[in-house]
Design a protein around this nucleic acid. Sequence first.
DNA 1: TCGCACATGTAACGTGTTACATGATTCA
DNA 2: TGAATCATGTAACACGTTACATGTGCGA
Lengths: 176, 176
Amino acid sequence: MNIKPTVLDFAILGLIQDNSLSGYAIRKMFEETALGSYSSSPGTIYPALKRLQKGGLVEKISQIDSAKSSFKITQQGLLILKSWFLKPIEKVDVEKKINELLLRFGFMESLIDKQQRIHFLISFQEELIKYISELETYYKSEGFKMPLHGKLAFQYGIESNKTTLKWCKKSILQLT
Amino acid sequence: MNIKPTVLDFAILGLIQDNSLSGYAIRKMFEETALGSYSSSPGTIYPALKRLQKGGLVEKISQIDSAKSSFKITQQGLLILKSWFLKPIEKVDVEKKINELLLRFGFMESLIDKQQRIHFLISFQEELIKYISELETYYKSEGFKMPLHGKLAFQYGIESNKTTLKWCKKSILQLT
DNA sequence: TCGCACATGTAACGTGTTACATGATTCA
DNA sequence: TGAATCATGTAACACGTTACATGTGCGA
């Protein structure tokens, strides 16, 4: 299939990887659990499901007794989901897509074996360490030029990445 | 003006609030400084500038000697930018728009007096405290049901908000 | 029976992404 | 002279947002 699922698509696939859900149930999941910060509006979810269906990643299961239907992930969908989990972590991911990395991690437990999940975290960790040292180097050379608010905002970036790094380390320990 | 600028629009306005810049210079700013994680592609920046121009928030200053031109924020633009800085902080902002809050903070220094900037941080802090306690309450009641990765991902959410809170406190001290 | 939550969708719209296109200037 | 960077743009496309639309079932 030559479609690239969006992050939202992957979030849906992640949600229904074990249990089929109705469109409405999926919406509620996005609305109530603060999972990621993904949209739950009908204008987002239903078109996404249609998309995934057309791409062969999910199939619609119609109930006999009622008009309700639910969506089940296909074999294809599972493969695509797995390859998303295992995609190598790049610089740009830690720079701009931390949420997506967390989403990947949050959903990978049952489809990926422990060793590879640990590898995910280690690789995450490595990219974070590189990125943090880049930020600190930049701050050392340019920080003094920045106005107060610029400095503080920049420091926020460093702090928040350090927190992510700590979380990585803790999670690696939890898994081993 | 009945246009709602996007976050990117505001980021551009913030960048040119003191110094006029060319479209290319703006692109480079987004590309090189990791300011926010906003796009720097020509297909994003130039249409945005055209948009802002049409809305009367920036004006194009053409150089006499060359074909180069730069963009200057208008009085209107300054007003709109200010009102963005001063917009009350809501729940949804801390839930899903931390980056936007940081962007607002990072750019507000020269246009907003110190008292109001501190008020921004205090209000930010208050919303964070509420949100963190919501997350912790949820975790206490639902956490035990979550699979390991779910727990860890959820904990990440809590940790990262706590880091933001710490940053808030530190920044309030820095400003006072 | 009134209103709310359940449940599924469509249509218009704007924006960002990607890819393409063009030309000037600088430097090796 | 050729490559890289400066510099500005356009066009197709897909996605998410917002608003609209419709109907069911349940409990007060």
